[in-house]
Measured scan of single mutants.
Amino acid sequence: NKFNKEMRNAYWEILHLPNLNEEQKNAFIQSLYDDPSQSANLLAEAKKLNDAQA
C-alpha cells in the first residue's frame, strides 16, 4: 500500500529532523496517523519548520 510506505518514510524522516523538539515531532507524527494521505505534505511542512529553526 502506497500510503503505508509514504507514511513510514515520512515518519522516519520527521523523527530524525535535528531542529524539531519532541512536541513538534509528536504533532507531525500524530497528523501522519490521522491522515496518511497527507504524508508528503506533512513531511514538507516538517522540513520547512526544521529549516526555519536551524
Rank of each mutant, 00 (worst) to 15 (best):
L43S: 09
N21Q: 13
K5H: 04
D34I: 09
D35L: 09
N50V: 04
E22G: 14
D51P: 03
Q38H: 11
F3I: 11
M7E: 13
K25P: 00
N9P: 02
N4V: 06
P36F: 07
P36V: 04
A44E: 15
N26Q: 06
S31F: 09
E22K: 09
A46E: 00
E13W: 13
A54D: 10
N41G: 12
N50R: 03
N19V: 06
L42M: 08
A44R: 09
M7S: 04
N21P: 05
W12V: 10
L42Y: 10
N21H: 09
Q24W: 08
N19Q: 11
R8A: 15
N41M: 12
L32Y: 01
A46N: 00
A40M: 13
E6W: 01
A52R: 11
N1Q: 03
N21K: 09
L42P: 02
K47T: 02
K25L: 09
F28K: 03
N50E: 04
E45D: 10
I29M: 03
Q24Y: 07
L17Q: 08
D35I: 07
F28P: 00
S39N: 03
Q30F: 13
E6N: 02
A52P: 05
A44S: 11
Y11S: 05
N50F: 01
E45W: 11
A52I: 11
E45N: 07
A46H: 00
A10Q: 02
H16W: 10
A27M: 15
H16D: 05
N50S: 11
K48R: 13
A54V: 10
F28D: 00
N50I: 01
Q38G: 07
P18A: 11
E23G: 08
E6L: 04
K48M: 06
L49V: 12
E23N: 12
F28L: 13
Q53E: 11
F28G: 01
N9A: 15
N9F: 13
K2Q: 14
I29D: 00
N19D: 05
W12Q: 11
K5T: 03
M7L: 08
L32H: 00
S39V: 01
S39E: 01
Q53G: 14
A10P: 00
S37Q: 05
P36K: 05
K25I: 04
N21R: 04
P18L: 08
E13R: 15
N1T: 06
K48T: 10
Q30N: 08
L42D: 01
A54E: 08
M7P: 01
L17Y: 07
N41P: 06
P36M: 05
P18E: 03
N9I: 08
D34L: 13
L17K: 03
N21M: 11
E45H: 06
D35F: 07
N19E: 08
K47H: 04
E13D: 06
I14W: 00
L42V: 11
N21W: 11
N19L: 04
E13P: 00
D35W: 06
D34P: 06
A46M: 01
K48N: 11
N9H: 14
L49H: 07
Q24H: 08
Y33H: 04
I29G: 15
A52K: 13
D34W: 08
E13N: 15
S37V: 10
K25F: 06
N41V: 03
M7Q: 15
K47W: 08
Y11P: 00
F28V: 05
E23K: 12
Q38P: 02
M7T: 08
Q24I: 04
K48H: 14
L49E: 13
M7W: 15
L20V: 08
I29E: 02
D35Y: 07
A44P: 02
L49S: 08
L15E: 04
N4E: 08
D34N: 06
D35Q: 10
N9L: 11
N21A: 10
Y11L: 13
A52E: 08
A46R: 00
N41L: 06
A10W: 02
R8K: 10
H16A: 12
L20Q: 00
Q38M: 14
A52W: 12
S37W: 06
Q30Y: 10
P36Y: 03
D35P: 01
A27L: 13
A27N: 11
P18S: 04
N50H: 04
I14V: 04
Q53H: 11
L17P: 00
N4L: 06
M7H: 05
D34F: 12
N41Q: 07
A40N: 11
A44T: 14
E6Y: 02
A10T: 09
D51R: 09
Y11R: 10
L15D: 02
L15G: 03
I14L: 06
K47N: 08
L20K: 00
I14S: 00
K25D: 00
E13G: 14
Y11E: 07
K47Y: 05
S39D: 01
Q30W: 13
Q24A: 08
K2H: 12
A27Y: 11
D34M: 09
H16Q: 08
K48A: 07
L49T: 15
N19T: 02
A46K: 00
P36L: 03
L15M: 11
D51E: 11
L15R: 11
N21Y: 14
A44F: 14
R8G: 05
Q38N: 13
P18Y: 08
N19M: 05
W12Y: 11
K48Y: 12
N4A: 01
L17G: 00
M7A: 14
E6R: 01
K48I: 07
N19K: 07
F28W: 06
Q24E: 10
Q30P: 01
R8W: 15
H16L: 09
A40G: 11
